[in-house]
Design a protein around this nucleic acid. Structure first.
Lengths: 308, 308
DNA sequence: ATGAGGGCATAAGCTGTCTTTATGAGCGGT
DNA sequence: ACCGCTCATAAAGACAGCTTATGCCCTCAT
């Protein structure tokens, strides 16, 4: 209730003022791994005083001692070990971001050109790219995102070497292999009536209720319409998974989304899964390529990483 | 193969030079949500030119156009939508970090004092704290991490209101309720012989092989020793889950860890799960409190969030 | 004992980034 | 035609982080 506390929570955002920047977190991880400030500094290509000062400023910012300094090295405190583990999650997310972002740059010299549907590009590809980078560090990948039609088009016009789609059907002219299974699920904000519901929803009830949906033509919408016999009733139609999630979290109504998209939200209880019965909302995720042109080289490397 | 490219990948670290900082990512999320640079700027408490310049510098850094500007607002480009979703993962990890870090500060006025074992504090508590903050924004939580004995000690001396343990036994003097189930799993680096193994490991084989383990006395080690009859043979003993994971990832040998701890690593294929048969490596995660003092108020709120 | 080496802290100066203030320009509805 | 919204540009100030240059502490080997 103090003025400061009030403002801190009222501002709400300002995360970047309470969380050390990525450079600081990387430094902390290096200190944890190497057991020495100077060693960590060397690894990151900065000087020892810079590392010392930076760790100290993180400790000031967090209000917690992170490392025990001694004349023969530095070890994490108990709190420091916790903070370091939480920091690792941020850095891993940043690594995935980096792998994805590098692939988004249009480069003519890419040895592997991938085109993928949105959901796959958002939730699965960064991980695959990281794994690929670990195994084949010199493979330059470029990524283009689009719907199933776009994927087919770019593959057939030789603008891409490997594609990923999430629809019900495989575009003609393409061979495919199933690489994972996905389910659409119904979710609501925790405050919604359905959030407390134990008895599964029936198809009729789902079809009769206005839902927050992706636009017609999206892979997600295709599957839902097919499952309900083309009857899905939109409360609003939004053009991205993100917008649908945001609307559902804010309590606008129930939404239908891939379980890939809402893992985090379910874990944090920002959204609640509503049980459904008698409706087939499963779909396959597939890798695709032009008929007959079985993937070779880098494309084959990536494909082998996607096996679940 | 160019000089610049060479250096970028050779440095390897330097993540913070290729990924925008948290402030920039938050700004991008706000732009995506509000559809306007100026609106996002207002929400974050900065001026419109600052937002404009910052978004522009992110686009320069990533080499990709993120937003389509128009005289009546800004919308994300396709690439921008992808980048924004990847950015959201980073920001969510940062929110968990923040929730945890705030709880680590020692504050006398905390209305809820929690003491938890390491694994739970590392992997589950931040999410619970975020959910608690969402539902009860004014609950100040403080967190202390330690082993089972520490948890019991602090609860019984009234230094904590609610505890979480992961061992096989409940310390005497405490009541408990099971809040989740956990399994220890055997993992190796992808290059290890066991990584390609299909036939499950037997207890005898596991007991005969030197493993990367937590130190004796840790919850993880207790469960493993019990399951193998006290026979676990350490290749090395390390004092943190983190260190065990790092050793396993680097290929030092097979490790035994909670599946909570290696979710990310398995998804990114940095580690591979080795099937095991005939060994009971399950354990319960429990909330605990002094016998008779059933949790009330904030403690009860938190407890109700942990139900799986 | 004593000197060498590794480890950390402090001080001073520099540089770059991000910010604000001030202003201009495009588009749309009234 | 004007007002309101949007975004862009330019100039100047504030701040954070880095480097260089030291000094102290501890340990180990000579």
């Amino acid at each position: 209730m103090s003025g400061v506390e009030e403002r801190e929570t009222a501002v709400g955002g300002g995360l970047s003022h309470r969380v050390p920047d990525l450079g600081g977190l990387e430094l902390l991880l290096a200190v944890a791994r190497l057991g020495s400030l100077g060693g960590a500094a060397r690894e990151l290509g900065i000087t020892q005083p810079a590392a010392s000062s930076r760790i100290r400023s993180m400790e000031r910012q967090l209000g917690v001692a992170l490392v025990d300094r001694s004349p023969r090295g530095s070890r994490l405190t108990d709190a420091g070990a916790l903070v370091t583990d939480w920091a690792r999650r941020i850095v891993e997310a940043a690594e995935a971001f980096d792998a994805g972002a590098q692939a988004l740059r249009v480069r003519r010299d890419s040895r592997l050109r991938v085109v993928a549907s949105m959901t796959i590009a958002e939730y699965l590809l960064p991980g695959w790219l990281l794994a690929l980078r670990a195994g084949r560090p010199d493979t330059a990948v470029s990524l283009h995102a689009g719907n199933s039609a776009t994927v087919a088009e770019r593959l057939l016009s030789d603008e891409a070497d490997l594609g990923f789609v999430e629809g019900l059907t495989v575009p003609s002219g393409l061979d495919s292999v199933v690489i994972a299974h996905d389910h659409l699920i119904v979710v609501t904000a925790p405050g919604h009536v359905w959030a407390r519901r134990r008895r599964p929803l029936e198809a009729a009830e789902l079809a009769a209720t206005p839902l927050i949906l992706r636009e017609k033509g999206s892979g997600t919408r295709q599957v839902l319409d097919a499952a309900l016999g083309g009857l899905a009733r939109p409360l609003i139609e939004l053009s991205s998974t993100t917008a649908v999630k945001a609307a559902a979290v804010s309590g606008a109504g129930p939404a239908v989304l891939s379980e890939l998209a809402v893992g985090e939200e379910l874990a944090l209880r920002r959204l609640v899964r509503v049980p459904v019965a008698g409706v087939s909302l499963a779909r396959d995720l597939r890798a695709v390529w032009p008929t007959g042109h079985r993937p070779v080289g880098p494309a084959r490397d990536l494909l082998s990483l996607t096996r679940d």
